[in-house]
Each structure stands twice: as C-alpha cells, then as structure tokens.
C-alpha cells in the first residue's frame, strides 16, 4: 500500500505518495527531479548518493523514501543559498577537486557535515571523514585541498594554497 510522506527538501515542503520500497535516491531524482544526487554503486559503498538527512550525511541509496517522512533533507541543489557558490563548491573549483564530477555532489554533501562538526579539520581527519566516498579520477589530493580551502574560507582565514596538484 502506498504511503503519503511529507518532508522538507532544501527548505521547501513536499508531499508525495510513494511505494514503501521506493529508495530515497530514486524519490529525489525521479519524483523531485533533483538529479544532482547521483547513483553510483547502489550498494552504499561509493557515496555518490550522499545527502543530508536532518543535517547528517547519509547514503540515500540505502534509505527508503518513507524513512524521510517528517524529516528535512538537503541535496547538492540546496547548498548555496543564492547564485554564488558556497565555500565548498568554490574550493572544489579553485583546487581542481574534480575531474569527471560524478562523485562531487556526494563529496560536497559529506564535507558539509564534516565541516559543521569539525570546522578546522586536519588533513588526516578529512581523509578519514571522506572514507565513505570514492573518487576514481583525482587521487583525492585535490579533494582534500578543496575541503581545507573551504574550512579556511568559512573560518575567515586566508586560503593559503589554491594551486592544484596534477599527478
């Protein structure tokens, strides 16, 4: 039997009827038409589908849409409040933190919670922090730099190096 769910998506309330087996990632992409959230491995390994559920980063391929009933979700479409990029998006651009870009929305959603919990992480903490997100292009170094850049920017500290690393 279908269930009616009401949730807040990037600040706006939505109500929809879903089959209980509908995965949250499919609901986001196909019902809400927010295709910035990607489906990578579909087995909760790669992190491409990472979103925030009540502020916590989760893998939306391993949640049911019905589990988001009454909750608030944030997707990559909701991270910047206006046309400008937020510090993480800017960090990824400035530091060449992406090549193909497939993992990027998940990386940014994960890094959003990471920086909310720990505004000044060490490189090691960042590497542990994104251990649930796979990138098959960059070798991660520029992603770590991008998050360090965003951390500095958000704390009002001069962003030291924006020189990307090519290996």
């Amino acid at each position: 039997m279908n269930k009616e769910i009401t949730l807040t998506v990037n600040g706006a309330q939505h109500t929809a009827e879903v089959e209980p087996r509908t995965l949250l990632v499919h609901f986001i992409r196909e019902t809400l038409n927010l295709t910035g959230t990607h489906i990578g491995c579909d087995t909760s390994n790669c992190g491409a589908c990472t979103i925030l559920l009540n502020g916590k980063s989760v893998k939306s391929c391993t949640l049911l849409a019905v589990q988001a009933n009454g909750k608030s979700i944030t997707t990559i479409e909701g991270v910047s409040k206006d046309e400008a990029m937020n510090p993480l998006q800017e960090g990824f651009k400035e530091n060449h933190g992406l090549h193909c870009g497939f993992c990027t929305p998940g990386m940014i959603m994960r890094a959003t919670e990471l920086l909310a919990d720990n505004p000044n992480p060490t490189e090691d903490e960042i590497r542990w922090g994104i251990s649930g997100n796979l990138c098959r292009c960059t070798g991660y170094n520029n992603i770590v730099k991008a998050i360090l850049y965003a951390s500095a920017k958000m704390r009002g500290v001069p962003t030291a190096s924006t020189e990307p690393e090519f290996v």
Binding site: S44, L53, K59, L114, W128
Partner: peptide, 12 residues
C-alpha cells in the same frame, strides 16, 4: 566504531 563501515553508514 571507527572501523565500522564509513561515516555516512555510521550515521544510520
């Protein structure tokens, strides 16, 4: 706990 899966999985 730090060896169980990854941060997102540990959130659930």
């Amino acid at each position: 706990s730090k060896l169980i899966a990854d941060p997102q999985v540990r959130n659930m």
